[in-house]
Design a protein around this nucleic acid. Structure first.
Lengths: 125, 125
DNA sequence: TGAACATATGAATAATTGCTCATATATTAG
DNA sequence: CTAATATATGAGCAATTATTCATATGTTCA
């Protein structure tokens, strides 16, 4: 066969096709990876974690994380574009808060994985 | 004050300290970002999505995703180190499966965010 | 209007990362 | 043991990205 990407002889064609038919659309998986990528940065996770408590302005967050307002603003833009936070303008000040509560669920679900006791495979060996 | 990281005058000290006292430990947040980072790649999300259906060997996955066994093996190592997948050896063949079911919850929670209708802020404007 | 300030953004740079290629390890068959 | 095969891994390269610095935008107050 010419349409092989792996020179192995042992691939289970039926199993592969069964899985392929059940996979979400390419675009969905791409967007999903993009979403997780946004969570996958220490600065942004800290911002999200802080906004889980209360809304904060850009300078509050900068002060909280000991970082420059500029870098925070850059990261808030990423979070905005991912629909994770929303701004509320009050004069010169912009307050940010979380955009919906899926975010808390995602965050907590991640925490559970982090904090759970190690499985047997990883303990031994 | 000398310990300011933001030259703004408007930061709410009390609010910042209140949030700071409630933030998870630095290390927890770091690990959490690392976990999400693992989900934040298209190839790895596809692997996870496939393993949600059934266990697969390295070559199955390579064939499924039209990628080289080498690149899949590299990514499986990342997934292993994050305790997201576990190997099962059968002769020369190594079958991978998901390590626990937090993973499905995380995956589904992410999907919900992706698929939900856009909020009002993002729709208008 | 103009100065001060909070935030946003573009460009540049340093660090990270995913893939490829070459090679190593491990298992099975002969 | 040797050849063949499935997987793992190290080095190198190209692409992505988080931060900094300079500058722009927008709001308030005199």
């Amino acid at each position: 066969m010419s349409d092989e990407f792996c020179d192995c002889n042992i691939t289970h064609k039926e199993r592969i096709e069964a899985v392929r038919s059940k996979l979400p659309q390419e675009e969905i998986l791409y967007d999903l990876a993009e979403l997780f990528k946004v969570f996958g940065d220490t600065t942004r996770i800290k911002i999200i974690s802080a906004l889980l408590e209360t809304e904060l302005c850009v300078c509050d967050i900068a002060e909280l994380l000991h970082m420059s307002p500029s870098s925070i603003s850059h990261q808030l833009r990423v979070l905005r574009q991912a629909r994770l936070v929303k701004p509320r303008k009050e004069g010169k000040v912009v307050f940010y808060s979380l955009d919906d509560d899926h975010i808390k669920h995602l965050f907590d679900q991640g925490l559970e994985h982090i904090l759970e006791p190690r499985g047997s495979y990883h303990v031994s060996a």
